[in-house]
Amino acid sequence: MVMHKMTDGEIILRVEDIHKCYGETEVLKGVSFDVRRGETKVFIGPSGTGKSTLLRCINQLTIPDSGSIWLNDEEVTHAGPLINHFRQKIGMVFQNFNLFDHLTAIGNVEIALIRVKGMSKADARKKALEELGQVGLLDKANAYPAELSGGQAQRLSIARALAMDPEVILFDEPTSSLDPELTREVLEVMKRLARAGMTMLVVTHEMGFALSVANEILFMEHGKIVEKGSPSEIQTSPTFARTRMFLGTFQDD
């Protein structure tokens, strides 16, 4: 049994009744939850149930049709041009990395520090080197994304998000395009982050990670949160039959 970190921090992110349609299909049918500082929430569920869309709604890369998002009691939805200010505080890690292909590893981490935060080049460099160290990529500082393995690329994109000192990081299937060997090195970094108290929302199919790291697992299906609970509740309580069935299909793999 793995110890779960305490999560009695204050609520920093509130997601209230988010709806989103793509044409005729309603992808999110009213999703609400609160996130406490230092908490790791893991979203699981079949593909196409709106998990990724939900994450993208949180930093407004996708604009929800209705509902609201609050970060530290400031409204993120309808922020207008202020959204860039919120996005600095809400980091995001993508399934296919989306590293900036024309910049070196360190350039990827520096660029937003310089352009968005207005840091001096020297300060940005220092900060970037720190973050690269955090994810074990100091020796790759001058490599371009095309020269990195998938695992290195994803660790780099985590460093890029971390450098902005976000209040919360959204992980959108961070290991789905990696083979198992590389998945492990990325999950290691994420576990360390979670233990260090980073607030994280993770969409993943890695059930081992969910059960060992999450404070809460949210099972989503058809655009709704169907069941949610701590890993131990889910594994033992009879009320989580649907989630356990889903977990079972994965654990049998």
């Binding site: 041009p81 996005r87 809400i90 980091g91 995001m92 993508f94 352009r115 998000a161």
Partner: peptide
């Protein structure tokens, strides 16, 4: 994805075009 990633870091569209999209 390049634009998406740039926006997710808090860049404005103009900043993203200038420092991410155009150089590439």
């Amino acid at each position: 994805g390049q634009m998406t990633a740039a926006l997710s870091l808090g860049m404005s569209r103009v900043q993203a075009i200038r420092s991410i999209i155009l150089p590439q």
